[in-house]
């Protein structure tokens, strides 16, 4: 029986104990991201001051990949300027397409644990949901 390649400990840990899954009282921007075909549904809440993501959180439901990916993403982008968040989003999305270099994937820290999803086309949307939502938030402004 082949092993569960992408359900590794990092992913399951972020799914079962997401640090950033809660409402964010001081948030000044929020956006909902939905994958209608899967039922993944998250609302990303950010507190952005002078172009820097001071704090962030999410609420919602969905598969382990969508939930863990959003949690890892917040680990990575909280405290960073929005331009940096967009740059990381670009790397993440390219990683999922199998187009990012090793050095770039290293920059994603734990989120790099999702790179095997590139072999599972049906789960790509789940992995990128949080990141697409961040892109939407900042590209709108």
């Amino acid at each position: 029986m082949p092993s569960n390649t992408y359900y590794n400990e990092i992913l399951t840990e972020h799914n079962l104990h997401p640090e950033h899954k809660h409402a964010l009282p001081g948030a000044n921007t929020a956006l909902r991201g939905v994958n209608p075909s899967c039922g993944d549904d998250i609302t990303l809440q950010l507190k952005v001051e002078d172009g820097v993501i001071e704090d962030g959180a999410f609420v919602g439901d969905g598969c382990a990949i969508s939930q863990a990916s959003a949690d890892m993403m917040l680990d990575l982008i909280i405290g960073k300027p929005k331009e940096e968040a967009l740059r990381l989003a670009d790397i993440f999305i390219r990683m999922i397409k199998g187009e990012a270099s090793e050095e770039e994937i290293d920059e994603l820290e734990e989120a790099g644990a999702l790179q095997d999803i590139s072999h599972m086309p049906s789960r790509v949307k789940c992995a990128v949901l949080g990141w697409h939502t961040v892109e939407e938030i900042f590209k709108k402004k």
Binding site: M1, P2, S3, N4, T5, Y7, L16, C38, G39, G62, C63, A64, I65, M120, R123, C126
Partner: peptide
């Protein structure tokens, strides 16, 4: 309990 159906079917497919 606690596992989304898409994760269930992915683990099933890994298990053949």
């Amino acid at each position: 309990e606690g596992v989304h159906p898409h994760d269930i079917s992915a683990i099933m497919s890994d298990g053949g």
